[in-house]
Each structure stands twice: as C-alpha cells, then as structure tokens.
Write a protein that binds this DNA or RNA. Structure first.
Lengths: 343, 343
DNA sequence: CTGAAAGCGCTTACAG
DNA sequence: CTGAAAGCGCTTACAG
C-alpha cells in the first residue's frame, strides 16, 4: 500500500515528493507552487496543482511547522466555557480562523492568572501563528511570554487604556456602557440604583466604575448601593442577590446586574416572590444573552457584540500573521442599550 | 541569543541535543529518558531530567509528531456550540485530555454530515492521537475515513445499536429515557402527552421513539400528539410551539419537550399567557440545563451525564491510545429523572 | 542499557 | 524562474 515501498518509517500518505515527481518538477518548486508563492511559472503551478489534486495530496502540518518554524495553530484563551459570552467569542473566532486554514487551540483559564500563564506557555511551545486572549490585564510573566515569543496577539473584549505594550485589542468601552445604562435608569426616574455583581473580573469592575460615575454626577452615589459577590455568576446567585438586596436595602428602586444571567435569575426570583418588575423594582442586565428577551418581563440590557469581536479579532490577527504592520491597533466595536420592559 | 550561534534556521529554543550534550549522553538516550521509556539507567534518567529542567527544555511538538507519526492532538467533533449540552461535553473532555498532555482540536459540524466529513478530513491530516465524535450515525465516507486512519475513536452521547464497526461509545440509552419520562407522566395521570421536538437529530428521534413506545403500550398513542419542527432549538421556539400546541391540540394535558431550552421557553410563554403549569398543562424537558431548576415552576426533566460522558470518553480514548485493546467498548452512564413542579 | 545513523515531510537560503 | 542541498528537532530501527 505505501507508495514508498520498503521504507519502514513512511506513513503511506502521498508526500510532496510524490507530487513533485509526478509533475516532473523539484520538491522546492512543488512546494512553492502549492503555497501560491509567486515566482513560479504559471504553467508549472497549474501542473503541480492538478497532480496534487489527482493524487489527493494533503500537506503534513507537522513537517510544515518544523521546517517553517510556524504552525497553523492559533491559540485562544478564554476565562470560562460556562458563560455563553465566551462561547460566542470562541465560535466566531474559530469560524473565521478555520476559513483561513488555521486550527484553534482553546484554553480555559478559569479567571486564574496562573492557569493563564501555564496555558500560554503550553500553547507557545506549539509555535502558534498567533494568539487571541481575553482581556488586557495579565500577569507580568504572561505579558513577558507574549512579548518574547514575538507571536502576533490580539486582546479581546476590552479596550486598552495603555497597559498593552504590544498586541492589539478589539472590544468596546465597558465603562461607558455601565455609565450609559445607569444614565438611562436615572432618566427614567429611578433614584436608588444598586449595582449587583458577581465574578468581579476586570470588565465587571469597569462597568461598575461607569455606574458609579453616573450616580456621582447625579449626586446619587452611596457605597451601600454596591452589592458585590466574588462567586461565579449564575441564575441562582442572581435570585439570591435579588432577595438579599430587597431585604437589606428596601429603598432601592432599580438594580443593575453586571451580567444577564444574574438579572434573569432576579427576574425569576421576582416571579416566585410576587414582586412586580419594574413597578416595585427595576432590573437591568448586561450582554443580552440568550433568553433575556424571553423573560417575563423581557429584560432591558446592554447588547454586546461578542460575535463580531471574535470575528474582527481573528481577522486582525490574520492580517498581522500575514506580516502587515506590527503596529498596535485598537478597535472599538461599540455596544447598544436594548430597552425592554424590565425597567 | 540563539545558543546554536550561526545557524540561520534555528529557533533559539533549547533543543533535545542541547540537553543531551549538557547531560553527557546521546540524543537517543535523552529522548528515551525524557519520555520515561524504560531501558534507561535510572541515574541517567535523573541526570537528563534535571538538566532538562535547568535548561528549561520544552519538546517541540511538531518535530515529535513528524518523527513519531503521531501528534499530541485529539480531535473532537460536536454539532453545535450554542447548545450548552455540547459545551459541557467539550469542556469535560478537554480538561481530561489536557491533564494528560493532549491538545484538543475542536470542530463544529452544525449537524451537517458534509461538514463533519470535511472537518474530520482536516483533522486527520494532523495525525491526531485520537478522535472523539458526537453520535454513532455518520456518513459512509466519514466511517470509512475513521477506519482507514486507524486512529482510536470514541463516539459520544448515544449507545451503538450495532452500527459501529469500529470505535467505542459512551453515552446512555436515549430511547429508554424517553420511555421512562413518558411513563412517569402517565403514572401521574396525564392522558394526552404530546411530544414536541426541534432539531430532530438522531438522539431526539430516539427519545421520541421511547415516548411513542410508552404511549402505545398504554393505548394512548396518536400521531396528532407529535409536534416536530426541524429548526434549531431555542427558548423562543419553545414558546411558539407551546402556543401552537395549545391552540391546535386543546385536549393535550402534558407536553414532553425534547430539550430543556424548548421547555424553558414554554414555561416562560405560559407565564405570559397566564396559563397555569402544571394545572392546565404539564411541561417536561430533557437534559436538565442551566436554569431549569430556577424556572417558575421548576422544570421536571431528565438529567443527563454529559460532563461524565465527556470525561469517560476522553479516559477511554487515552487507554486506547496507550495501545490497550482495540476492542470496542460500550459504556452506559445512565440518566436520572428529576421531578420538580412542572408536571 | 546505549549510541550513531537514518529518516519523518516539509521549507528555505543559496546558487544559478 | 528553478533546483540541489541543508536543515527544522525529534524518534526509532539497528547494532552493539
């Protein structure tokens, strides 16, 4: 079966040499033709391509990586797979990358900087063509690893405030989103707007600072309106926080949850408790996750363009891989406040 | 910086030869020591290991793959990323695989056999150490590809009824789950139990056949109780189907949705429509997804062990990679009916 | 138990 | 524009 006959190490697959021989050219030329490198006679290109097709030639990625010192892998680091937000990011990035012949290596950091660093180290050993990483705040070793590796990198979901010395970022202004949502609430006449958050990652903190800024400007900020819980976000936790806030801060007339799962849980808890939203208390969320439009009442929230972020980031990475500018780009994809009936 | 000095092709990384030289052994011995191959003197192993540590040696996966004709990749094919079920599967499998030094290559088939085949072809070109694939029903070319490749493979989520000529499977009996849930409804006194489904993949069809069997045995089967919709599953669709069934099949007193997102959507629609569940109509789902326990009323459903399936499948694959038996295994991880208040 | 040698399947200076 | 040669960094028969 193996065309190479006696060789005990061969795999039996059609190799570049097989193609070259059949096309009557040297392996070098076949290689160049296949990769679309210019400086190969058009006729030869055509011949090589058709022979390659006929023999069902599939390049060996390992050999290619070894010879070129560059694999067809792109690493993507996300905090969690249990948050639909990151799954959307992953899916969009992966789809774009794959369309360009890159394989996605996914790493889940669990919001742990140690794990992030460890994963990056592992991925870097694969000589990825590029890396996509969530957020702009990373440990010093992680940043150093990234810089030393010289691998193109783009940061996702937030915009750098200058903490990035290398790499681009694509996202939106989380602080501004928090600010505008709070201003909407204020405009609607709510007077005591609580901010309820879990997970407490950097982006959540930015949203909170936007909320605080809006309240402060309106002369309505009080520390007692902050309700923080470091646990992982979930519907159940949202329900619990909702009950606690109502019990301990009875004057609150609106709650801004840092994420939709929390807000959905609050809406469901309200239903159980017989509390009318928004008449007794308004509830708003963040991200516009699946189901938010189906809630009773439908949830007012901030729609964030995570799929577009994943795609744009992948696209940007692709450009940088192709060796365009090493310049650092910063792409703001914005957000949109979706007013529904919960506030 | 590059230790190899003048060589223009070298990457500057510490190589196996560097380690071997520093440890005073041949590269072959260093290679064997590092991989824990027996037949190396313990003292040498120790020396090599410590030198390797000191120099910060990281093996090059591409070189290793090329030389050994086996990469450290494991491919996993799932239908969708937008269904939490598959994300759970992916996460568990990935975690297990990574703990053993394997990288996961993820492919999303969108329930498209063409795409599945195409993805598999791509992945196989990477010489994966193994492949994990959702379901046991694949196109003939896909099955052939799998067999010819000789790569260990395990099928996820369902149990083979004999359609697998190679490869193992780990899952549970979908038909039995459908049957038992329906029997529970019948025991509770529901008389007209509709089955409402979307997506209509092989596993959904198995659940439906369990439902039909239970109804038939009870003398309560009617074709009009089947409500099928080939669209992708979503909360919104569940709500729509719920309304339609109520309008067009007013005698129905219980609805068995093939997936929890549909059932959650139905519960939310009931709230909007002012229909009491389960008094006017019972609603049950499948999978026990996030949020089902938070619904109003909490959803009765079938809890499926997808995380355990992902983990067990990865474990099983690992065994087969290590060259244990090529024997086909079939692991049934069961399911559990969770009675809550919606039925 | 150990090592020298060949080889995995490509890419890429280098020379023409 | 093309090719011969070297080399990427490992593993693995083969011989001892």
């Amino acid at each position: 079966m193996p065309p190479s006959g006696a060789n005990p190490r061969a795999t039996g697959r059609t190799t570049l040499s097989d193609v070259a021989r059949a096309a009557g050219v040297s392996p070098s030329t076949a290689s160049r033709a296949l990769r679309g490198e210019r400086a190969v006679h058009p006729q030869l290109v055509e011949r090589v391509l058709s022979v390659s097709q006929r023999l069902g030639y599939v390049p060996d990625p390992a050999a290619r990586a070894l010879a070129s010192r560059r694999s067809d892998h792109v690493a993507i680091l996300i905090p969690l797979l249990s948050n639909a937000l990151f799954v959307d990011l992953l899916e969009a990035a992966q789809k774009t990358l794959r369309a360009h012949g890159y394989q996605t290596l996914m790493g889940v950091t669990h919001y742990d900087r140690q794990e992030e660093e460890q994963l990056l180290r592992e991925f870097l050993s694969h000589r990825p063509a590029g890396v996509l990483i969530t957020g702009v705040d990373h440990s010093a070793p992680t940043l150093a690893l990234l810089e030393r590796s010289q691998v193109p990198c783009v940061h996702l979901m937030e915009l750098s405030g200058g903490e990035l010395t290398a790499g681009s970022c694509v996202g939106f202004d989380q602080t501004l989103a928090g600010l505008q949502m709070t201003q909407l609430l204020l405009r609607k006449g709510y007077r005591r707007v609580a901010f309820a958050a879990a997970q407490l990652d950097a982006r959540v903190m930015q949203r909170m600072s936007g909320w605080r800024q809006a309240l402060t400007e309106a002369g309505r900020y009080e520390p007692a309106l902050e309700w923080l819980n470091p646990s992982v976000s979930s519907l159940e936790l949202g329900g619990k926080m909702f009950e606690q806030i109502l019990a301990q801060r009875p004057a609150v007339d609106a709650i801004f949850f840092c994420n939709d799962d929390l807000a959905q849980g609050a809406l469901l808890a309200a239903l159980r408790l017989g509390i009318e939203v928004p008449r007794q208390v308004a509830v708003v969320g963040f991200n516009d996750l699946t189901g938010s439009d189906q809630m009773v009442p439908p949830l007012t929230t901030v729609r964030t363009p995570r799929a577009r972020i994943g795609e744009a980031a992948a696209q940007m990475l692709l450009e940088r891989i192709k060796g365009a500018s090493g310049a650092m780009a910063r792409l703001d994809l914005g957000f949109e406040i979706v007013e529904r009936a919960s506030a």
